[in-house]
Design a protein around this nucleic acid. Structure first.
Length: 262
DNA sequence: AGTACCACCTGACGGC
DNA sequence: TGCCGTCAGGTGGTAC
């Protein structure tokens, strides 16, 4: 379930291991994850080093020393792993970058819903994918502006990558849980206090989760996520967690803690 | 414009 | 033990 915090941890992993080493081989194990021809991937990456790794929403963008960008999307089951011993290669590696110092970076993608792309320009890529601003790089005024004029349920809006990028099914539940607002609450009915609360929860949930993910730690037990299953005990009250369906996806909430604004 | 639902995909898991 | 249906959930497409 990689969403913004997990993707940020992937970015951090790449940044702290794989920069400034020339790639001398790109091993495509499964071309179904390529959003670019293997030929183009090879010709743009081989002989070049990763210079920086940034994140926008659920994408990691790696700038190469030829000014091209490698764009990684992880789908539901992606990961990256850097290792020195070929024997350590993860089971679901789909693309493996070999560096000249004999280390490796594997793009893992068990269910193959992820994608590896090569793009010319970071801004153009974000525009082409119609991504909203990154959830962490958005101030309150921007957040409010993105939601203004929007109808429908708040959970759906938070998950819409065109509204803001990075939040998915799991973290939208957490943000609304910590905001004490029910996921079906209607956006036009939310007042400024509600929006401030949601914005504040979003920032703190994402920042806490990033810290924990980078350290490899679990999320706090006070979060909903560790209890995100039908009839689990609510971590904040005596009630139980409820599973509901929103647009055919599972949402979890505590109807006792979370008020529905309709 | 918003909602519902399907498909993509593979592995884990529960039921019988 | 072992087969089978279901589910996970990001994204994109379709129908209403």
């Amino acid at each position: 379930m990689p969403e913004l915090p997990e993707i940020e941890a992937f970015r951090h992993h790449i940044e702290s291991t794989a920069l400034n080493q020339k790639v001398n081989h790109v091993d495509v194990r499964e071309d179904r994850v390529l959003g670019v021809s293997a030929q183009k991937l090879w010709s743009n990456v081989t002989g070049h080093a990763f210079e920086t790794a940034v994140r926008h929403g659920k994408y990691v963008l790696i700038q190469l020393d030829n000014q091209k960008w490698l764009a990684l999307h992880f789908g539901m089951t992606g990961d990256v792993d850097y290792y020195d011993d070929e024997q350590e290669e993860p089971e679901h590696s789909r693309v493996v970058f070999h560096f000249e110092n004999e280390s490796y970076l594997a793009f893992e993608n068990m269910r193959m819903l992820g994608e590896v792309m090569v793009v010319d320009d970071r801004e153009d890529f974000v525009a082409a994918k119609e991504l909203g601003p990154d959830a962490l790089h958005l101030d309150y005024d921007g957040f409010q502006a993105r939601l203004s004029g929007r109808r429908g349920m708040i959970k759906t809006a938070l998950m819409d990558q065109q509204v803001l990028a990075g939040i998915g099914n799991v973290y939208s539940d957490e943000i609304l849980f910590q905001s004490h607002l029910h996921p079906r609450s209607q956006v036009p009915q939310l007042n400024d206090d509600h929006l401030h609360t949601i914005y504040g929860s979003m920032q703190s949930v994402l920042k806490t989760a990033i810290e924990r993910r980078i350290r490899g730690d679990k999320l706090p037990d006070s979060f909903l996520i560790p209890h995100r299953a039908p009839r689990e005990d609510c971590p904040q009250c005596d009630g139980q967690v409820e599973q509901i369906s929103i647009s055919g996806r599972n949402a979890y909430c505590c109807p006792n803690c979370q008020k529905e604004i309709a």
